[in-house]
Simulated scan of single mutants.
Amino acid sequence: MNGFSIFMDQDLTPQTVKYIEQMAQAGFEGIFTSLNLPEDDATKYEARLMALGELAQQNELALMVDISGPALKRSGLELEQMKQFGVTGLRADDELELTMIAKLSHEFTIGLNASTITANDIITLTKAGADFTRLEAWHNYYPRPETGLAKNYFCEQNAFLRAHGLKINAFIAGDKNLRYPLYQGLPTLEKQRYLDPLVAWVELKNLGVTGVYLGDPGLEANTLERLKVYFDRQVITLRIKPEIPLCLQVMGEHENRRDVAELVIRSANARKHVLTQIVPENTHPRSRGSLTIDNCKYGRYIGEVQLVKQDLPADPKVNVLGNVSAYYLGLLEYIGSGQKFRLVEE
């Protein structure tokens, strides 16, 4: 599931309503929110959750709420009320008893704390009659820089979770309207804190994460558009900084050849569309992320379009057209056999 976060520190504004509608139209399927933030005014939660739940239902979005025993008491909300408001899932804090979680699993999708659940907890939930078809594992997000999870630990824990049949959810940081009070992103993995959201999204999916949620409450328009293309057609978008005018002629959609090359990504069909002679120009060394085209000196390879995966020397037979913007370089490793990718001008 693809999801995003809406926080209840303020009443829903027209801008937030529009944002929710845009996210739903882009292919997002769920909203995450929290009753578990001590800086919020808990007396406002009931009205705000009711409004958010109504919007979620209108846009056919699941609604997962982070809760704890103390947070429920502070808010004054009853679980039955939350169900009426359109809440479909509860991300359960460690303070909730496992027997209570087992009982709630017959009413809601339950998100267990992915980082702390143990084999003994699984045994206890089984004995308590939990509905495992409605149990999922949810990692935290980490507002403070340097405290996000290590990738190795994340992968090891996920292997344990998958072995017990649990779907795994994790967060990535946004690139607009970052969450207060630190404004440093809300990722699960520390290494992803300042990554392009599409890079982070694709990486988590490749690590076997079932549900990826945007932690921060905002995305830049071009990021949302690139994610929509990925959701709709599994096409990876790369933004290119042109160096020579010919670069603009190869913008558009390409597909990596199925016989994957070690050092470059080869467009499967670019040579079929060569209509003019390509003379040598801009034949300087090719850094990682260079977009290149073979010139007339390469004979029948003329017009071959490539993306360079690691630094290569200059070749008088290869023109450098431009470069993948540094922010998006991480996407190169996910363009595998037959993967479609789209080149757009930066």
Rank of each mutant, 00 (worst) to 15 (best):
D93R: 10
E46T: 07
Q25I: 04
Q57T: 03
P70N: 02
E97T: 14
E136C: 15
E107I: 04
D41K: 14
A62R: 00
I123W: 04
T33V: 03
P38N: 03
G89S: 06
E21I: 06
L96G: 08
H106T: 10
I67Y: 02
K73I: 14
A26L: 06
H106D: 13
N120C: 12
L52V: 13
E136V: 14
Q58M: 11
L61Q: 03
M50S: 11
E46D: 11
I117L: 14
G86N: 07
T133F: 01
L79R: 00
E21S: 03
T124A: 07
E95V: 06
R74A: 00
L49H: 15
D40T: 05
A51R: 12
M100L: 15
R91Y: 03
D66I: 15
T16D: 05
M23P: 12
E54H: 09
T16V: 09
R74L: 04
E29M: 15
K83N: 01
T33F: 08
E46S: 08
I101W: 02
T109Y: 06
L55T: 08
A119I: 00
I117Q: 01
I123E: 08
L98N: 01
L112G: 00
R48A: 05
T43W: 13
T118L: 10
D41I: 14
K103H: 05
P70D: 05
E97S: 14
T99Y: 07
P14Q: 13
G27R: 07
T99P: 04
T88I: 00
L72W: 10
H106Y: 15
